[in-house]
């Protein structure tokens, strides 16, 4: 009896030890993040304001802003989303609902999973060769957006497949049993029921794309831009213009990098402020993804 009590005491002590070790490990991560954020905020917060968002970069740190950077980031992301969403979702649907299960689709599947792990700079090189040199898109918003689209395409495909796989087979059978074709089943059931999961994947992909620097530098984004891309609207018919697609650009992380590499302390503050903006953008997008997932989970539970 004494023996057992002793054993229990020892195991309980080990329990206690691990609880402390686990707590400390968690705190290390949290504390680091907290320090980083506080530091960033202390440095950058005073710089945030309307003028910071509405000004071009400048030689004078007080006058410099992120106008061209956030507009560039926004437009690049627009191109990325327009390319990656239709292609990625269509590929995901095809692989799950249409393609047979054989060695070829297995190889494709493994390759897509591998593509998600390819370093982003490699996508930059690919985009440089294909979009800049071969298609002659130039060092433009279009090239940057497509480079990032390549980068997040595997993520979008995988998110789509995961979301589709969560739909129980009984739903497909119910649809087919009523005489539906494959496309009707996809259109009325597969796409609507997987939208939550797909959107979540897309937004997380985009929030990764917005912070990417390497592929954007590789395709030749500029680091100092004091003008905006051409307007998407024109005064003549058809009133919209796609000229902006071929304009040079910069993005948030490159603007940050540019400021960080300057010797003056004031520019470091600008970098911190831009960092806050970038982080907020990412957090907002991730928050939105969580919200969407929550909304859809509430409506559709299998």
């Amino acid at each position: 009896m004494e023996d057992i009590k002793k054993r229990i005491r020892i195991t309980k002590f080990l329990d206690y030890i691990f609880a402390i070790v686990g707590l400390l490990s968690t705190l290390v991560g949290l504390a680091l993040l907290f320090t980083l954020m506080t530091d960033l905020f202390m440095d950058g917060f005073p710089r945030l304001g309307y003028k910071f968002f509405a000004s071009f970069p400048s030689r004078f740190p007080d006058e410099a802003g992120i106008l061209s950077a956030w507009v560039g980031s926004f437009l690049v992301l627009l191109v990325t989303a327009s390319a990656a969403i239709p292609i990625g979702v269509a590929a995901g649907i095809y692989l799950e609902e249409y393609a047979g299960k054989n060695w070829l689709t297995n190889i494709i599947e493994i390759n897509i999973a591998n593509l998600a792990g390819v370093p982003s700079i490699v996508y930059g090189l690919l985009a440089l060769v294909v979009f800049v040199y071969f298609f002659k898109f130039g060092e433009s918003i279009l090239t940057g957006g497509l480079a990032l689209a390549l980068l997040i395409l595997p993520m979008v495909i995988m998110a789509t497949r995961e979301a589709i796989r969560a739909i129980p087979n009984s739903i497909r059978e119910a649809s087919y049993a009523l005489g539906a074709t494959k496309w009707q089943t996809v259109q009325f059931h597969i796409i609507p029921y997987s939208t939550g999961g797909i959107l979540t994947g897309i937004i997380i992909g985009l929030s990764r794309a917005i912070g990417e620097t390497a592929p954007i530098i590789t395709v030749g984004a500029l680091t100092f831009i004091a003008f905006l891309p051409s307007s998407p609207f024109s005064s003549e018919f058809p009133f919209i213009s796609f000229k902006w697609l071929f304009d040079p650009f910069t993005v948030m992380p490159i603007q940050m990098f540019n400021w960080v590499s300057r010797p003056q302390h004031e520019f470091q503050l600008n970098a911190a402020a831009a960092g806050i903006v970038l982080m907020m953008m990412t957090l907002l997008m991730n928050g939105f993804a969580i919200y969407i997932r929550y909304r859809f989970r509430k409506k559709i539970k299998w």
């Binding site: 129980p168 009984s170 739903i171 059978e173 119910a174 649809s175 049993a177 009523l178 005489g179 539906a180 074709t181 009707q184 009325f188 059931h189 029921y193 409506k299 559709i300």
Partner: peptide, 21 residues
């Protein structure tokens, strides 16, 4: 089917689906 497998849609849309198809 063995287990009830309604679509995650409204009652109306469930019944109307075969007709929509």
């Amino acid at each position: 089917f063995q287990k009830p497998n309604p679509f995650p849609k409204s009652i109306y849309e469930n019944v109307a689906y075969g007709l929509r198809v």
